[in-house]
Amino acid sequence: MELTTVWFALIAVLWAGYFLLEGFDFGVGILLPFVGTDERSRRLAINTIGPVWDGNEVWLLVAGGATFAAFPEWYATLFSGFFLPLLLILVALIVRGVAFEYRGKRDGVAWRKRWDLAIFVGSLVPAILWGVAFGNILRGVPIDAQHEYAGGFIGLLNPYALLGGLTTLALFTLHGAVFLALKTDGPMRVQAGRIAETLALVAVPVAAGFLIWTGITHTDGWGVTLSAAAAIALVSAIPLTRARREGWAFAATGATLLLAVAALFVTLFPDVMPSTLDPAHSLTVHNASSTPYTLRVMTWVAVFFTPLVLLYQGWTYWVFRKRLKLSDIPG
């Protein structure tokens, strides 16, 4: 197998891990105004992701860094063409991170409400715009013969990409609700479970619409198969949530995200950014990649350090595996 293909697959794995882990972070942040009836319950919701949210964002940094090093042409065209939405995502992530740190610095009610709003907006904006961005990548964008983006911001807000944004919003919020039900006990566990049941009824038709549209426009066999598997996993989350089998329900929503990302990248391959102006202008794993020497060096670095990072993050989740309840939150 060529190293360009290996690194395309590795970048797909990094994005899948990011959506799996940061997805429930976004979901909890979006649900914060709805599950937090008072200060203690809001703190309980935040504490479920408190030890892990910043570690989950490392997957995004590594995915971006790997793209820059392995496929510099892809990175350059993506970040120049999608500059405004990616800037909005970056600002939202910064505001969200600051909100987590500064929320508890003062005891004022108005102070904490402002930071709670920052957490909500900082979670909502990326949850939508990631779907819009990947919807456009899969659909294709105007790329000229110099591999430069030749469109505008408004062109990115097409119906297919917007449906992709609604899909990631629905899936992340459902994923977060199931995570809250899994990580808490008492009234919040019941409330989060009920919210998850309702959200599942919304997420299924929205995601189904996006998958059907994708299947009609992209007939790749493996992509369709993975999309169907993602749909099955998503539907299975409904009875599991109703049965209060939160662990299995979280596995189902997680599998939905992993399979959806896998379907996206499989359908995209060997392109990394298709051109709607001329297929000959499309960026592929071959014309957008770094030199073979660079890819070899990166491969050896990944072989040594990736297992260490996975072990450390797995250990973090193991340490903080306990369910939380209101009695754990001081008055």
Rank of each mutant, 00 (worst) to 15 (best):
L326D: 06
W315F: 13
V309W: 07
L326H: 03
P330T: 10
A302Y: 00
Q313A: 14
Y312M: 12
T316H: 12
V303I: 13
W318I: 05
Y312W: 15
G314P: 07
L324V: 08
P330H: 11
W315A: 08
A302G: 06
V309A: 14
G314M: 12
V319L: 13
T316Q: 15
R323C: 04
Q313F: 15
P330C: 10
F305C: 04
V319T: 13
K325G: 08
D328T: 01
F320N: 08
I329L: 07
L324F: 07
S327D: 15
V301R: 07
Q313V: 15
S327W: 10
K325W: 04
L311R: 12
Q313Y: 15
R323P: 03
D328E: 06
W315G: 00
P307Y: 03
R321F: 04
P307H: 09
T306G: 03
F304P: 00
T306V: 13
V301A: 11
V301K: 03
L324H: 03
V301I: 15
L324N: 00
V319H: 11
Y317V: 08
I329K: 06
L326C: 01
S327Y: 07
V309F: 14
Y312D: 10
K325Q: 09
Y317I: 09
F305A: 09
T306C: 00
V309N: 05
F304H: 02
F305P: 05
V303T: 07
P330Y: 11
T316K: 13
G314S: 15
R321D: 03
A302T: 04
K322D: 01
F320L: 10
Q313R: 13
F304K: 05
K322R: 06
R323Q: 11
V301T: 11
Y312P: 00
T316Y: 12
R323T: 06
K322W: 00
Q313E: 15
T306A: 07
V301G: 09
D328G: 01
V301D: 05
L310D: 04
V301Q: 09
G314Y: 13
V303E: 00
W318Q: 01
S327V: 11
R321K: 05
K325V: 04
F320W: 12
L311G: 06
K322M: 02
L311H: 09
